[in-house]
Design a protein around this nucleic acid. Structure first.
Lengths: 242, 242
DNA sequence: CATAGAGTTTGATCTGGGTCAAGGTTGTTG
DNA sequence: CAACAACCTTGACCCAGATCAAACTCTATG
């Protein structure tokens, strides 16, 4: 599962640090992009775009992280994706966003005028190839997450989430290493399709069972990696097929 | 929501009826594809590929429908996508499938040797553009489905499913029109993250409430479209943002 | 047209996780 | 450093949907 944390070896030569766009750092393309771009920042918690808003720009996250989510009329909300540096908001061919985009941390965006960006996509082949690859990656991650949302128990959901957080920090994973939860209990709940109380209870249980140890609310250590893996409900080998 | 039923106006000139591949029906490209392709059929219920199997071929569905699903060790299964004519099994850059692919009806596939297909994708720009568009469409559909799996009640899930089935048949939807459920109760359950008993009960309730009328197990009519829409839990206007 | 078997419905009961409510921590601001 | 506001934990209770079980209804097949 690489829902959250794709390999993101942004190109250092490129001012917008965009693998999709600057995979080969062609100077002409960069020049075009240079002329198009503008920056904008958002504070933690701020809504970047509401579902249905017109997309005048295609943006890419330069720094920080944001969530894609949908809220039903009565307030139930489900996070359907996370945006990290190099991810796009908006995509060629779409005039409006389908989900609310909210800043999880302070966020800096690099924006391009949509029409110009679309022209670039249709003119420069390797850009659509990169967008294709990104979309396919996110598609499998989303499907993987559908299994979690549809069929996993609360404990399995939490264990899977913890494993995902840990995998971001260090691969290969080993025990007795220090990690930090990137979200509040409520955000975790909206991500996993649970309530914040259930998240809290399940984390307490993992602590009681000697799987995790907490130092404060967000900082933790894995005491029993095998037990954690076991609790995810995934295949024993934890195989991530890519 | 167009998870199941994308617009699929396959090009009639192209023998493989593939919008992604033959969007402009370039004769040379078609000739290349002609030479590559082979056909294979599967019977209803047959497994087309198991998760983890090597993908020697990229296939496209020519006729019939198939499901993408994952089954946990104890037998819980979640359907994460449906494949209809023009959809692909396998994608450029992936050596193995991440989900089980099962024939829902009898299925005919048109297969291409993977390496050759990948070459075509990187050589012919408009192919990666089409694959990109398809992947982006499926990505939003998958995310939409994540909201359903994570946050909707059984009744809302069923109502959303019925509305989706109906939207495939006729747009605009109107009442007193005849429709057919494409799956068994168990398949619906695995699609919605429910048990088959709950699916059956909720369908009975919709019948009792005068929303639907059944003729046999699979054939039904909508008696109260407004009530159905209302039961989906989606925004009143039922807006599908694309 | 009898029979089998898959698919479905319905009932009875159980339970995981939601809801409501009360405190407890941590960290921030005047 | 007091006091407030987020954030988190824990308890008590409840209910939607799961589970277990039985019977019903198609459809297919010999």
């Amino acid at each position: 599962m690489n829902f959250v944390f794709n390999e993101r070896d942004g190109c250092s030569k490129c001012p917008i640090r965009h693998r999709a766009v600057c995979a080969r750092c062609d100077e002409d393309e960069l020049a075009i992009l240079e002329g198009m771009k503008s920056y904008r920042t958002f504070e933690q918690g701020e809504t970047i775009i509401w579902r249905g808003d017109d997309l005048h720009h295609i943006s890419s996250v330069v720094a920080g992280s944001a969530s894609l989510s949908r809220t039903l009329e009565d307030g139930r909300t489900q996070v359907v994706g996370l945006l990290l540096p190099s991810d796009f908001i908006g995509s060629p061919g779409r005039k409006a966003v389908e989900f609310d985009v909210t800043a999880i941390t302070d966020v800096t965006l690099c924006r391009f005028e949509r029409k110009a960006f679309e022209r670039l996509v249709s003119d420069v082949p390797h850009i659509s190839q990169r967008v294709m690859e990104m979309a396919l990656d996110e598609l499998s991650a989303a499907r993987e997450w559908m299994v979690l949302l549809g069929r996993k128990t609360a404990r399995e959901k939490i264990a899977t989430f913890i494993e995902m957080v840990v995998r971001r920090d260090t691969a290969p994973i080993h025990q007795d290493q220090h990690h930090t939860l990137p979200f509040t209990r409520e955000e975790i709940a909206n991500f996993l399709g649970l309530t914040l109380e259930t998240v809290s209870r399940q984390l307490s249980l993992l602590k009681k069972d000697g799987v995790l140890a907490f130092v404060g609310r967000r900082e933790f250590t894995i005491l029993d990696l095998a037990a954690l893996r076991d609790a995810t409900g995934d295949d024993a080998d934890g195989s991530v097929i890519v």
